[in-house]
Nucleic acid binder design. Structure first.
Length: 637
DNA sequence: TTGTGGTGT
């Protein structure tokens, strides 16, 4: 390990850390900064017996890095070195170096805004600009100043990032010194197309076969595409085309890679390639940051990505194919040069590259921020407009969040631009859930159906638990028919949860019923966690197993802004936005036409569809928000 | 009559 480039600058880093309260460390992955810098600080006693936090955007990273560092220090995980992620905390009173997800540190700041148990906080992978890291920037900056003002122990901050946006970070952190650590990336040759490619999928196929015919086997290829369907189509095309190639060429092993692919199939992409074969990994942006594949020599970059954007006027999240940023293009290119020099084929011209925006728009400017705002208020930040965001969300996005939270009764306006948490909002902020789902739990308390609501909310908090492979679609739908309900998908989900519980979490039960076992286990974990939070908050764990009507009424009280009304032409009208919407064909209510429903979410594809529905009585909607519905219905023609 | 980039509490 001592041959890592970081050891060459160890002394200089330590001196700089001693000198300045805030430092910025720039270094590529594989520079060793994440594993070594916390150890340097610990070994020279700079933490003064407080905790050293090192935050990561991803759970897996927090866990595996902690394990590696513990091994290097020759101690079991959980003693001097530990990790803390949702559902799993390995730390003990001995722990001094704590790897944690940034979301976890943010949660802790609700209990102590000054984060007093930490003497050093390292924000790692800052260039990824997740919502949580962005909010933490403001929280730790405030904590540092305020701790000084209140004569608490000094808080030392270290921001670690790849080579992007350096000036932006330095400026935000009052011109903190920037320290560079050499990476270990091998040289990469970049090729652009000479002409603009109108068909990036066709261009990707051509490039893959060109590499395949000209380059030695064993040199694997990574292709960046935008989504599952595209990847499966390209995979099939490569397999088909391979049949017409000369037999003398090496065999192509095609490996799709995307997050919703079952784990066992994902693993194929990481297996080493047999001699005389070549691996082609067809991946979404999961291979940009979340996973690393060894042995990649060629990267084929289509320059496209599927990304979310938020429309504050319609309150809609839209997922669409967009051009990547220049920073993303370099991140992708870097995937080629990890073990030896690599070659990158960019399927766009150099002029197009210079037209890409230099940096990816931070997530906080692309998504609905209701949850973030609720969290900031819970931390104790009263004036959101004055909060020191490194890049603030748009005014429209913030006011859209406030109007949603006001409607839900979570906040009230207490000044021209000031908002306060209500008692309800306080209760809601206890749960690490979408605000509407937190409210559903609170609504269940007076109706005495808390246990059922915990199950439902947990089911609604994961990606779909239904597993419907295209080839076995009819069988899957048929075997799951026993769970469906004319009261809607919410009741169906509760039925599935109950059957899964009765099977004692059986994997074979899931297999037989076309249910995703991995996601069901997450449902169990979430339920256990929020049930624990209820106990801590003295929420009575009441149960009403039979009466689904009372459960649906609570749902109506919490999700009334997601209500839709049947129109005479058979379509629905979303009452909040007045848009025409349809029942998604995957819903168990697809064949029926209930007069009023609430939905979990809208997805905008070929049409605007409501996904996950619950049949409601319009009276329940009025009960929940009389003024809102009166004005909404007045506007009707 | 259909489709889900990736994370996280």
């Amino acid at each position: 390990k001592t041959d890592l480039p970081i050891f060459a600058v160890r002394q200089r880093l330590i001196e700089e850390f001693k000198k300045s309260e805030t430092s910025i460390v720039i270094g590529e992955t594989a520079s060793g900064k994440t594993t070594q810098i916390p150890q340097f600080l610990y070994n020279c006693g700079l933490h003064k017996n407080g905790l050293i936090a090192c935050t990561q955007p991803r759970r897996v990273a927090a866990i595996t890095i902690a394990q590696r560092v513990a091994q290097e220090m020759g101690t079991p995980v959980g003693q001097e070195v530990g990790f803390c992620v949702r559902f799993e905390d390995s730390t003990s009173s001995q722990t001094r170096i704590k790897y944690m997800t940034d979301g976890m540190l943010l949660r802790e700041s609700i209990g102590d805004r000054l984060l007093k148990k930490y003497s050093i906080i390292i924000l790692d992978e800052a260039h990824e600009r997740t919502i949580q890291t962005d909010v933490l920037f403001g929280v730790v900056k405030y904590a540092q100043v305020q701790r000084k003002a209140e004569n608490h122990r000094k808080l030392r901050l270290i921001v670690m990032s790849a080579t992007m946006d350096v000036d932006h970070f330095a400026k935000y952190f009052s011109s903190a010194p920037v320290l560079y650590v050499e990476g270990r990336l091998h040289p990469i040759k970049i090729n652009y197309t000479r002409e603009i490619q109108s068909d990036y999928i066709g261009a990707a196929l051509t490039t893959v076969f060109q590499i395949h015919q000209e380059e030695p086997a064993q040199d694997d290829i990574l292709v960046f595409l935008t989504g599952q369907e595209e990847i499966e189509t390209v995979a099939q095309t490569i397999k088909d085309l391979q049949l017409s190639l000369p037999l003398s060429l090496p065999k192509l092993i095609v490996c799709p890679l995307y997050a919703s692919l079952p784990h066992s199939l994902q693993l194929r992409a990481f297996k080493s390639t047999p001699a005389d074969c070549r691996k082609v990994v067809l991946s979404t942006n999961i291979a940009e940051t979340s996973v690393t594949i060894r042995g990649i020599k060629f990267v084929v970059d289509t320059g496209k990505v599927k990304a979310k954007s938020f429309n504050a006027s319609t309150h809609l999240d839209i997922l669409s194919v967009q051009s990547i940023s220049q920073a993303q293009a370099w991140q992708r290119a870097g995937r080629a040069g990890r073990e030896r020099h690599g070659i990158v084929y960019r399927l766009y011209t150099e002029a197009q590259y210079f037209n890409f925006s230099p940096n990816t728009v931070p997530e906080i400017q692309r998504c609905n921020v209701s949850n973030t705002i609720l969290q900031l208020l819970a931390i104790g930040i009263k004036d959101i407009h004055a909060f020191d965001f490194i890049d603030p969300p748009s005014k429209e996005s913030i006011s859209s969040a406030f109007s949603e939270l006001t409607l839900l009764g979570a906040v009230v306006q207490s000044g021209s631009k000031l908002y306060e948490l209500t008692a309800l909002g306080q209760k809601m902020s206890v749960f690490p859930l979408d605000p509407k789902l937190s409210k559903a739990i609170v609504c269940a308390i007076p109706q005495n159906c808390v246990e059922e609501m915990l199950s439902l909310v947990s089911m609604l908090s994961v990606e779909s638990v239904l597993y419907t492979p295209q080839a076995k679609k009819d069988v899957a739908l048929d075997v799951r028919r026993k769970f469906t309900s004319n009261e809607g998908d919410f009741v169906m989900l509760l039925n599935i949860y109950r059957a899964f519980k009765q099977s004692k979490g059986s994997k074979s039960w899931c297999f037989e019923n076309y249910i995703n076992h991995r996601n069901m286990n997450v449902v169990f974990e979430i339920r256990k966690q929020i049930r624990g939070l209820c106990l801590k908050a003295n929420v009575p764990l009441t149960s009403n197993q039979r009466d689904m009507k009372v459960l649906r009424r609570c749902v109506a009280h919490a999700l009334f802004t997601n209500a839709a009304e049947l129109q005479t032409d058979g379509t629905y009208r979303a009452i909040d936005s007045n848009e025409t919407v349809l029942i998604h064909p995957s819903s168990c209510l697809f064949q029926s036409k209930p007069s009023y429903v609430v939905y979990r979410e809208l997805i905008h594809t070929s049409k605007c569809y409501m996904r996950d529905l619950c049949v409601v009585d319009p009276d329940w909607l009025y009960e929940a928000a009389p003024n809102y519905f009166q004005s909404k219905l007045k506007g009707r023609r």
